[in-house]
Write a protein that binds this DNA or RNA. Structure first.
Lengths: 152, 152
DNA sequence: TGAAAAATATAGCCACGGCTACATCAATGG
DNA sequence: CCATTGATGTAGCCGTGGCTATATTTTTCA
């Protein structure tokens, strides 16, 4: 039975607005993060990232992938020459590492909480982008605590 | 030091694509969920939900709120007559309850993991929409376990 | 009561992220 | 070696979700 208490109206409107604003801002970065991570993975696995592979793995048509790559270039995260593969800038590579690490932490946390692994992957794909540094730290601390306990 | 192992390329492309597809699908529902919850809160607090209040609390201009309300009507979640307030259909009200309850669970979980409350609210606003039934259940079970321990 | 103010609606713009259809380039193999 | 095929790029459409500017309706109060 859900508690009908109007949680949201108990805080100042401006504060609530800024929460939503942040969520929107995160959302606009999420796609770039996913692409950057995927590009990094493909380069590590095959030495290059082709637009066709990006499209297939993202589950979109290739013009969509091309467009997003253009945006990555605009944002200084990737480089690409026509009909050649896509590569990451230093900044893009750093972002890819952070994203990959955060992704793993989120998945590990969900699994530690009892979510089945495949399910954890599914949910993590959306959740991860909204996990701030501070929250990520809390996740890592929790995982370390759990590990210490299981080792004792 | 981030582990360079290409997690993402170790699974079949089609499976990876469906994860992203799901995340996109969730995203398209997220805004509706936020509005429905907010409308429910405003009605509970003030007896009605005005477009101006929705806009202020969502942190958008009011034409944006009007447009979203139109979409809520199309989706059968809300009703509204011009220059009158916005109200929820039965389906909208049920959704609002589910969303509100899930929101609280996510916030409680984050706090239980050591995230400062205000920070928990901030991150939860984005995370909650991606928490599936299965994962939500795991969160609730974890919270119950923690409560049982603190009571003993 | 009727004019000013506030709330709401409408029109039209933009960027993003999907898509299909079509054009162009590159790689392969007959 | 060049023609076909596959990969990539380009054009142009759509819906969403922002915005500003302007019209309209409702409310308020002098």
């Amino acid at each position: 039975m859900p508690d009908p208490k109007p949680v949201h109206t108990q805080i100042p409107p401006s504060q609530q607005a800024s929460r939503f604003a942040r969520a929107r801002e995160v959302q606009s970065r999420a796609l770039l993060e996913d692409y950057v991570e995927l590009i990094g993975d493909l380069i590590a696995a095959h030495g290059e990232a082709r637009v066709a592979d990006l499209a297939e793995r993202m589950g979109v048509a290739h013009p969509t992938a091309t467009k997003t790559v253009a945006r990555l270039k605009r944002e200084g995260l990737a480089t690409a020459r026509p009909y050649r593969g896509v590569f990451l800038t230093d900044e893009g590579a750093r972002l890819a590492d952070r994203v990959r690490s955060r992704h793993r932490t989120v998945v590990d946390l969900l699994i530690a909480l009892g979510v089945p692994p495949e399910h954890a992957e599914l949910d993590a794909e959306g959740i991860e982008h909204h996990v701030s540094r501070r929250t990520l730290q809390a996740f890592e601390d929790f995982l370390v605590r759990g590990q210490a306990r299981s080792e004792s």
